[in-house]
Design a protein around this nucleic acid. Structure first.
Length: 727
RNA sequence: GCGCGAUUAGCUCAGUUGGUAGAGCAACUCAUUUACACUGAGAAGGUCGGGGGUUCAAGUCCCUCAUCGCGCACCA
């Protein structure tokens, strides 16, 4: 039955392996990922509405996982849709140096493969190793992104740590320094003994663990008992705080007690009254350790108490005798408990569930330590911005609806974060990252975009929190600090920021902070937050669980289009989704179905020439045309509302249950027994509807649709990716 | 402690402004070389987590409880 001049490819099942790389190359060579080329070639109008978006830059810590694949798919759908609507469309790729994450990864490799530490190599040599690793990760990421079909404008690719971004970082830092938004301060910070660096509040992950809650007295003649889960810090106590209204301890307030020998350490404890102490908690008395607790430091400040550091950067004790000196905190804890017991001072030992602070990237247990660090002041009024603080600017951007968050329930999450926000610690004691643009000479400090020209200045050793540079991303990638840069003028603020909801604080909020402060405008008009991709049991995919699916493996097994479809369908904004191979398989069958539909349509319409506006449809076809056109109208609206999960499913439904099962089936009868008028009308309908299906399906399944488009006999056709979205 | 989300067919999820419960996958029955077995036709499957309320009408709105998950805060 099949005519010999049908493309022979159609005679076999659809083969994504043979197709995908070839199609991607075709797209890349066309240059249409680049909006400038689209304008040059008459695809998009210079004055057309813009649609711009930055890709959340993946960390150069290794390879892409399914979460990245989901991001790439959702964003590619947005971009391809906008491009087909004739918008001036830019999707900008890049990667993130992910300072701590990348450095600790390389440190691990170095330790494992060569048994060396970074200090064995020295800063310069170690950084070379990190850069090599980063480059390799980058290359993998780029090739994986292409594999996913992402229509990113590679000519504009950026890196958070390249020269242009470094210039932007230095410029931003200098402005903030001059405005006194950035300051250097001595405070209790989150020290990660494992990563040997300070981290911000947001980089802490809380883990529930069992702990012992000890109640004891410093000495037998001390009048008040206190409780703690960390007895080892008690050698750094300078006071006991009670609630001012607590009758039990009223008489002691103001007195100072000297304990000559607390496990070998001399303590001077003053009894003070402070509102923050809860009468009901523990004994209602709090041992104040200013050097190793945020709250205690605040109490100490109010009461003018000294700070006594007893733990160092390696989480080891710096005071006492051989029982604790130089010991790890966990060992010192046992030693002190043992001593308390032997002295008869220990009154109670309870088991409690405690939230322990760990470092997000290294897993190290956070040790609060007093340190001199750089901070961003989130409360200082900024003259240039109507005397509003960063907190207020961030709040206003969303409250004013200048930024629209989808789904909107995340607005509340965002407001709550701002409410609890404290000054952002931005300095890190690691080597990989943007060096702080501050120089010291004796007592002098100099902050500048470039190093001071005179001799004798030495630069701050620290680097910046990786999110500092990510915060500038929407504009540092578009030519800023040159505010006349054409890209910056055309594409900023960006239209859309699409990312997973788990980096709303790290990234989304920081971009809003940087943009509203530095530029006075929002970085993006819309935020679309997607959920996390989980395994069939709903668990987070992780290497240690061994349940993570490799996107590359999946795409080579089932084809990229099927993987994309399964990542989209059943995935509403903000909701986590479950991924299984069964689901992907279903969409592999769908791609093949479409392939066979094409085979049928082309082989049965061979003697008919496709006419874009066919004048003489019969009544039956007019009804069918109305049906598909109404569907297109409906899904176009839903595309504009970002309901991709809905659209994907509707197109699937229509092509399979309607077009293939009903329309094609009845066509067989028409082609066999119908009049010439009926046959002609049907043939035109089949061809024109296939064209419509290919167009609306293209953003979802770009490879198979482009491949079929190439086979269909239509005159003067462009690539499907730049065809106009049907109306 | 504060807040958010989920709970609908065996599984995964839709269900727009309230108007007769939907899809995919799986399982079941039939068809057997068809554009396509990566198939077609058919049937089956649900007191929409429990309870209460508003309404002519509630999966949908309100209250409440339960279970699961998440975020933030606390963590002496």
């Amino acid at each position: 039955m099949i005519e010999p001049n049908i493309d022979p490819k159609l005679l076999k099942p659809y083969d994504p392996k043979e197709t995908e790389d070839r199609i991607y190359k075709l797209w890349e060579e066309s240059g249409f990922f680049n909006p400038d080329v689209c304008i040059e070639k008459g695809i998009a109008d210079k004055n057309a509405e813009t649609f711009s978006m930055v890709l959340p830059p993946p960390n150069v810590t290794g390879t892409l996982h399914l979460g990245h694949a989901a991001t790439l798919t959702i964003e590619d759908i947005m971009i391809r849709f906008a491009r087909m609507q004739g918008k001036r469309t830019l999707w900008l790729p890049g990667t993130d140096h992910a300072a701590i994450a990348t450095q600790s990864k390389v440190e691990k490799i170095l330790e494992k493969e060569e048994g060396k530490r970074k200090t064995d190599l020295g800063r310069e040599e170690f950084l070379k190793r990190v850069e090599k690793f980063a480059q390799e990760s980058h290359d993998t990421i780029v090739s994986q992104s292409k594999k996913m079909g992402a229509s990113l404008d590679w000519s504009r690719e950026a890196y958070t740590l390249d020269a242009k971004r470094n210039f932007a970082v230095r410029t931003a830092f200098k402005k903030m320094y001059d405005d006194e938004i950035i300051y250097r301060g001595h405070r209790i910070v989150n020290w990660d003994p494992k990563g040997q660096t300070v981290i911000s509040d947001d980089e802490i992950v809380y883990e529930e663990r069992k702990a012992k809650f000890y109640t004891f007295k410093y000495s037998s003649d001390f009048p008040i008992s206190i409780s703690t889960t960390r007895p080892e810090t008690k050698v750094g106590d300078v006071a006991v705080a009670v609630n001012p209204t607590d009758e039990r301890y009223k008489d002691y307030v103001g007195k100072t007690y000297v304990i000559e020998n607390f496990c070998g350490v001399k303590l001077e404890i003053k009894i003070i009254a402070d509102e923050v102490v809860e009468k009901e908690f523990g004994t209602g008395a709090l041992g104040v350790t200013p050097a190793h607790s945020q709250i205690d430091a605040e109490i100490a400040m109010r009461h003018n108490l000294p700070t006594k550091q007893v733990i160092n950067e390696f989480a080891k004790m710096t005071v006492g005798d051989e029982r604790i000196l130089g010991k790890k905190t966990t060992e010192a804890r046992l030693a002190i408990v043992e001593w308390l017991q032997s002295e008869g001072l220990l009154e109670k030992e309870e088991e409690v569930i405690q939230n322990i602070s760990t470092a997000e990237r290294t897993g190290g247990i956070i040790e609060p330590l007093p340190k001199l660090q750089w901070f961003i002041n989130v409360n200082k009024p900024i003259k240039e911005r109507g005397n509003k603080s960063l907190k207020e600017l961030m709040l206003e951007a969303v409250q004013s609806k200048n930024i629209n968050i989808i789904p909107d329930r995340f607005e509340k999450v965002y407001y709550n974060w701002i409410l609890n926000l404290r000054d952002w610690c931005i300095s890190r004691q690691i080597w990989y990252g943007h060096r702080i643009p501050v120089w010291y000479k004796d007592e002098e400090i100099y902050c500048g975009i470039e190093a001071p020209s005179e001799e004798g200045w030495s630069q701050d050793e620290d680097t910046l929190d990786t999110w500092f540079s990510s915060g500038l991303w929407t504009f540092s990638t578009l030519g800023w600090p040159d505010s006349n840069a054409p890209d910056f003028q055309t594409y900023h603020p960006t239209n859309m920021l699409e990312t997973a909801y788990d980096i709303i604080f790290f990234w989304v909020a920081r971009m809003i902070l940087m943009s509203t402060y530095i530029l006075g405008v929002v970085p993006f008009k819309n935020v679309y937050l997607h959920g996390l991709v989980r395994d069939p049991q709903g668990r987070k995919m992780s290497k240690s669980l061994g349940n993570s699916l490799d996107p590359l493996e999946l795409t080579s097994k089932y084809g990229t289009d099927s993987v994309r479809m399964s990542l989209i369908i059943g995935t509403g904004p903000g909701n986590d989704s479950k991924m299984s191979e069964d689901k992907i398989r279903a969409y592999k069958n769908y791609a093949n179905k479409l392939w066979n539909i094409t085979r049928f349509v082309l082989s049965s319409t061979e003697n008919f020439k496709y006419e874009e506006s066919f004048p003489s449809y019969t009544e039956r076809e007019n009804i069918l045309i109305k049906e598909i056109d109404e569907l297109i109208k409906e899904i176009t609206k839903e595309m504009e509302e970002y309901k991709f999960y809905l659209v994907g499913e509707k197109i699937y439904q229509y092509t399979w249950s309607r077009f293939a099962d009903i329309i094609i089936e009845e066509s067989k009868e028409i082609f066999l027994n119908g009049t010439d008028v009926d046959k002609n009308s049907r043939a035109q309908f089949l061809l024109s509807t296939l064209v419509k299906i290919l167009k609306i399906l293209h953003p979802f399944m770009p490879f198979v649709t482009e491949e079929i488009w190439g086979i269909i006999p239509i005159e003067n056709k462009k690539l499907l990716m730049v065809e106009k979205w049907p109306k």
